[in-house]
Each structure stands twice: as structure tokens, then as C-alpha cells.
């Protein structure tokens, strides 16, 4: 059952990712991205990370994507021109080649790696909270709140009509 779910979710993620980059209308891209994010959330859950899975839906699929859609509506974006931009195909080919190189190397490592017994793993929300609020990460955690605040102020300042 888990395997079926995993591969179904993986396939869905790949297909919707293709939709994200293949569609000319950014609204469709955005919906495709939402599907990708949600299916990734399923995979996170299957990998034993309920906290990240929940965050993926709430923060990513919820907050961030709503922001994207909001901007798309606000700017009333039409579909873009047909051809990719200057040198897009060539550069894209080089980029894919580079990533393929990476995939090949990673595959080689993974194939050789013996799948050992899965270690005991507890990524419950309680454990996550204990780690995030431990002295090791507490200050980083607090720093992210300042980062968010700064981003908030920055976004307001940038998007204001007259500055």
C-alpha cells in the first residue's frame, strides 16, 4: 500500500512539475506547482516526517502559492510569447547536461551503496520542537523571525507605489 502510494505520488509530482515548466499560461503553472507540492507532502509523510509534510501543505501550498496566485491576478498576466528567451534552449541544454552528470554520479553512488537496515527514526512534531528550541538551533530560529520581518518590510517598501 505504501509503495503504491509512494510511486503514485512521485509520478504525480513529476507530471505536475512538467506542467509547471511546460505551460505558457503562468496560472496553469501555478496550479501545477501546487499539485507538485502536495504530492511531495505525501512523500514526506511516507518518509516518516509528518511535521515537514504538514508544513509543506500549510506554508508552501498554502501561503507561498497563494502569494504567487495573488500577484498573478494583481498583474493580470497574459500568456507569454511563443519562443523561449535569448539562448534559452542552448543554455537549458547545457544545464540539463550538467544536472544529468550529477544524476549519473549520484546514481553510481546510490547503486553501489548497500541499503542497510533503516535506523530508528522519530521525526514527530514534539521531537522537532525539542530540537528547534534546543540551544543548538534556538538563535538561528530567532534569527529567521528577524529575516521574515525584514522580508515583510522589504516587500512592502518595494511594492509601494510611490517611493
Amino acid at each position: 500500500m505504501d509503495q503504491v502510494l509512494f510511486y503514485a505520488a512521485a509520478a504525480l509530482a513529476l507530471v505536475s512539475a512538467l506542467v509547471v515548466i511546460g505551460q505558457k499560461n503562468p496560472i496553469y503553472s501555478a496550479f501545477g506547482l501546487i499539485v507538485t507540492l502536495c504530492s511531495l507532502s505525501v512523500i514526506f509523510g511516507l518518509l516518516g516526517s509528518p511535521f515537514i509534510a504538514a508544513l509543506q501543505v500549510i506554508v508552501y501550498a498554502g501561503a507561498i502559492m497563494v502569494l504567487f496566485l495573488f500577484v498573478l491576478m494583481l498583474l493580470n498576466v497574459r500568456s507569454e510569447q511563443d519562443a523561449p528567451g535569448r539562448g534559452g534552449r542552448t543554455l537549458g541544454a547545457i544545464a540539463v547536461a550538467l544536472v544529468a552528470l550529477l544524476v549519473a554520479q549520484a546514481g553510481a553512488v546510490l547503486v553501489r551503496a548497500e541499503p542497510g537496515p533503516a535506523p530508528a527514526f522519530d521525526a514527530s512534531t514534539q521531537r522537532m520542537a525539542e530540537i528547534l528550541f534546543s540551544p543548538q538551533f534556538l538563535y538561528v530560529f530567532e534569527a529567521t523571525s528577524i529575516l521574515i520581518l525584514a522580508a515583510l518590510v522589504g516587500a512592502i517598501a518595494l511594492a509601494k507605489k510611490d517611493f
Binding site: 535569448r86 547545457i94 550538467l98
Partner: peptide, 12 residues
């Protein structure tokens, strides 16, 4: 695009 390629090459 050109910048992205350079960054990607570095990351790879």
C-alpha cells in the same frame, strides 16, 4: 539566464 548557468555550474 547566463548568471543562473554560472551559479549552476558552480553548484554542480
Amino acid at each position: 539566464r547566463h548568471y543562473v548557468l554560472l551559479v549552476l555550474a558552480g553548484a554542480v
